[in-house]
Design a protein around this nucleic acid. Structure first.
Lengths: 353, 353
DNA sequence: GTCTTCTTTTGAAAGCTTTCAAAATTGAGT
DNA sequence: ACTCAATTTTGAAAGCTTTCAAAAGAAGAC
């Protein structure tokens, strides 16, 4: 591979001049400039990102740390970040943590030695990001946190409007006539799961609807978790007529559990999810869901990072993306025909808890 | 950040010795070794991957080029590669091409300047990878091609057994009693789509079943493509009683089109997909599909790459992963009740083609 | 104690860029 | 033509590691 030295020789100039032409770091007389450019072309020269990074103490790499690319919500986030990064000359190093904070730590430590221009992180559970990011910031490397936040985080953030989205979804269920609502939340040590629960509660309180503790179930953010907690909810008396799921994966599990229990969605139980994954329209019934753009989450994070890279040193930005309710076929009014009301038996059973 | 020089000073040895301790490149007396290691620990030293890569003409980075992380089949592939890479000290730079060979070329060119230890590529359509990889191989950088192959590729490969999988699926449909089979293939300039079509044809021929050209439709590998071509197939007379889809996304489209046409799956039309995405079990009916492990595709590719990195210089490896048929609820025997036979009208219409 | 032979350790070069101070060149003004 | 100021260009250093030849040290044989 041709090096800068080769170019300098071909063009008959010094190393410094080649660098200046390439980076526009100093005025170079036109004919010289042309000669250099021509040499670059003829030799198919491309500057070594390694040497460049070493000298500049900063590479064109952005570290992206996420729990698991295999989780259907994240690919869009990554893609959004990659697109913006790519079009600005940056590349993404992708790291999966599996929500394991020690793995996250390993990535954080190793990534540092690549001198990345910045980091985009979806923190793992119990993440130590707040402390770790300190050392990045010290050397001027931006770290933006997305989707959910680690404890005490005070840097840049991009998140969905979880509370508002959940509120909106719950409100819709209530307006459809539901009175017995339940929710299956994500892991409540995750801020996004918390906020969604808050939104749910807010709507419930606003409508003065009772919410017994057993109607709030915490699960992992996956189908498995949704299914098992839904099975549990469906056995409660009175049986909830609507379930707000902490995310779509949970909702898919709920859908499965409803079928499993011999019930129908939406006739017997309405369901709303969160995230509006592409697959939401594939299920039967198609899932109503709170839509938030993962792509935008990623691209916005990248754009904040780019600002930081270009020198913005202002206060931390906290961007909250709007959500919107995407209505499909998984919600209906509670059927008045065979309402599962408090029966004598039901009461008795319920009072056992 | 501490550098090697600092460590050398703390431990009271020379730079070279530190390097030898860290890399085991030369015997170092135990007490010295311990002193160095202790210094490394106390200073939290981590070697600069950049300087190291620059000097060694090889970094701990693996370039991974795929069409689009947003396509549900690829995350597992990436994850498989990342896991194996990570556990061996390598990191992944992720590049999306959107199947655009010029974008692929851009990535290929830029990636070179990072001196990656290797490349894992799912080639874009009309990929020029065969030529491009030449320059990588010249400097001893391995390139392994997965899922589908570019023209004239003669390097390492890992692919699913597309033909066998398709054959198996088609055979199953035939055994269930179907005689009017159709297929919606992926883009036929992709080797995997071709092979799947071959498998389909093989099974048809084996059973001496007729296959009129209009029962083979080519589509893009997505829901959209599947839906529109399925709509077309469902209007043919005789109407196919079973459709083999080139991948699951196409199959999802088929499912939608069937519903759209007022028909039922599997009673009226059976469907089998390919890939066995996680979502296949979420649809209604749950989709039967040819299962191939994306994760394994990725991890196997990474392991071949690691062998190359470690010096294996033998002939190209061509690994073909087994597929298996995953039966769910989208296939049934053709209903004998109301078979769509060649009617007089049907014949006339059909003969118009 | 000296010599030889290994084994350890060292010092410097090399890898490719950017950057800064210094040198060279240009152009305007007189 | 000559000076001065401004603009271009150069050369060398620096960034952090690995590696190779050479120097230093240890150990064994005599």
């Amino acid at each position: 591979m041709a090096t800068m030295k080769d170019i300098a020789k071909i063009a008959g100039v010094s190393l410094g001049t080649v660098s200046h032409v390439l980076n526009g770091t100093a005025g170079v007389r036109e004919p010289v400039r042309r000669r250099v450019l021509e040499a670059v072309r003829s030799a198919r020269y491309q500057p070594s990102q390694l040497a460049r990074g070493l000298r500049r103490v900063q590479t064109n790499v952005i570290g992206m740390i996420i729990p698991d690319i295999t989780n259907p919500f994240f690919p869009a986030v990554v893609r959004g970040a990659e697109d913006l990064a790519f079009s600005n000359g940056y590349r993404l190093i992708l790291c999966n943590t599996d929500n394991d904070h020690s793995k996250e730590l390993a990535h954080l430590n190793e990534l540092r030695t690549y001198l990345p221009a910045g980091l985009i992180v979806i923190p793992s559970t119990f993440s130590d990001l707040t402390n770790q990011a300190e050392s990045y910031r010290e050397v001027g490397t931006g770290v933006v946190c997305i989707d959910r936040l680690p404890k005490d985080w005070d840097g840049d953030t991009v998140t969905g409007d979880n509370q508002a989205g959940a509120y909106q979804a719950t409100r819709h269920l209530i307006q459809m006539g539901h009175k017995h609502l339940a929710t299956i939340t994500g892991p409540l040590h995750l801020t996004n799961a918390q906020e969604r629960l808050n939104g749910f509660r807010e709507a419930m309180e606003e409508s003065k609807l009772q919410l017994a503790p057993e109607y709030v179930q915490e699960a992992t953010f996956d189908k498995q978790g949704g299914a098992s907690k839904a099975a549990l909810l469906l056995r409660l008396i009175p049986r909830p007529t609507a379930i707000f799921a902490g995310n779509d994966m949970i909702a898919f599990g709920v859908l499965a559990a409803i079928r499993e229990a011999g019930l129908r969605c939406p006739q017997d139980v309405s369901v709303i999810g969160f995230d509006d994954l592409e697959l939401a329209e594939l299920t039967n019934p198609a899932l109503s869901s709170v839509s938030q753009s993962g792509y935008q989450l990623g691209s916005t994070a990248a754009s904040i990072l780019l600002e930081r890279i270009r020198g913005y040193a202002g206060p931390a930005k906290h961007i909250i993306q709007e959500t919107s309710l995407k209505l499909r076929d998984s919600v209906a009014s509670p059927s008045p025909g065979i309402p599962v009301k408090r029966t004598a038996t039901g009461n008795r059973r319920a009072s056992k808890r």
